[in-house]
Design a protein around this nucleic acid. Structure first.
Lengths: 220, 220
DNA sequence: ATAAATTTTTAGATTTGTCTAAAAATAAAA
DNA sequence: TTTTATTTTTAGACAAATCTAAAAATTTAT
């Protein structure tokens, strides 16, 4: 595989993420929206990626990654998430500060570098947000990230992310002193409205079903 | 300073290095040679950098970095060398493997990242080749790299690089079991031909003035 | 099924960084 | 000081990735 441009890599990665939502085919417009570009630009790039056999593309039909495109995409995601681990674990970055930097680092070309980095980090299988890190062959461990609302009474977990990152929701979390890394224990679940009684460092709090369905946690 | 393109950064860095050889002005052709591009491309870029006040350029007159161009160049060199330290000290790379990767990493944009990285590495003042690392303000400690031929009898130093990296010279070093990191002690200097008797892990060896003038070492 | 709305693609233009070929300025040599 | 050689710049072209505007295909609604 000859080296790709940054732009090509960004398209592959975006299609990869959109494919997990729409496995039957990803539309031109959805790619344009996600990448904040125009549909016409997407069409041009899809033709190019198609000629390189990284995507299977038929006009007006949406697009899917080929096997080799999928592998390339996974390697980019692997790099992104390994760098995030490095930034958080060794350079003291917070979860919400690492994305833009990892977005740049994911394009660094060197297999040796990424293998050594993975070793250095202890071959982690998930990033600081609880998302899985593909291994060098592209294998992905089952994600251990789940919604707070999926926990059973008595289970403990740590907060690893949010589904909806609207500023109202983040402000709410702030007020409840819930942030990345906060440990949460489910004390009780109300059958009536599915609201949860949870224990945080803060003390005991009640959160609605809606809140619990927007907060990602990882058991352990 | 708004972000620069990779290409702009590479030009600044090249001009910076050439300026240490030709402080009175750097010629268009020398830049083209070093960057393996054409003189006409260089001219175009010099105009662009000049408009951004990063170089002072008058046609047919060669070019020099302005104060702000110099600062930018130093920050790129700082990043390059810090990443080299990281690769060698934490990811077990050898001195001769790090250049191409650092060449990519030097373009990552984040002041916070580079400050944190420097802290993580213990704020080193020189890279694995013995070249100085500018601090966040652009200050550069006196280089501690010198030629083996400059050492006095009795002094010890470690090998940090070569001046001429022709394969004959590298093969010679290999045969003498001298490599990056090898400790060398000067035992005796022949007045007649300036050849040196040195001690390495290998034992006692005699090297000519020519060899000693091609090998960089760092005292300590 | 036909019209209206949406999505996607084409056609043509723009920007960045590069190139070749030719012209202009400078430096070296006779 | 001319002539010659070298260096540098201009002029014009090209590839990559993008954009706008308009056309074509598809989908949705009447």
């Amino acid at each position: 595989m000859k080296p790709m441009t940054f732009s090509e890599e960004n398209y592959l990665k975006t299609i990869y993420h959109l494919m997990s939502l729409h496995p039957e085919g990803v539309s031109t417009n959805s790619i344009a929206d996600k990448m904040e570009t125009k549909a016409s630009s997407v069409t041009d790039m899809l033709k190019k990626l198609s000629e390189k056999n990284l995507v299977s593309y038929k006009r007006y039909q949406g697009v899917l990654l080929t096997d080799s495109g999928l592998h390339e995409a996974k390697m980019i995601v692997r790099k992104h998430r390994l760098w995030e681990v490095f930034l958080v674990e060794h350079l003291d970055f917070k979860w919400d500060e690492v994305h833009d930097i990892a977005e740049q680092l994911e394009h660094i070309q060197s297999e040796k570098l990424i293998d050594r980095l993975a070793d250095f980090l202890g071959n982690p299988t998930q990033d600081p947000h609880g998302d899985p890190i593909p291994d060098a062959d592209g294998k992905i461990a089952k994600t251990e990230k789940q919604l707070l609302s999926e926990l059973k009474v008595g289970e403990k977990a740590i907060c690893v992310g949010v589904k909806d990152s609207s500023s109202e929701f983040l402000k709410y979390l702030d007020k409840q002193q819930i942030s990345l890394g906060t440990t949460i224990e489910v004390l009780e679940k109300e059958d009536f409205d599915q609201s949860l009684h949870i224990r945080t460092k803060q003390g005991e709090v009640v959160v609605s079903q809606k809140i619990a369905g927007n907060l990602f946690v990882r058991k352990g």
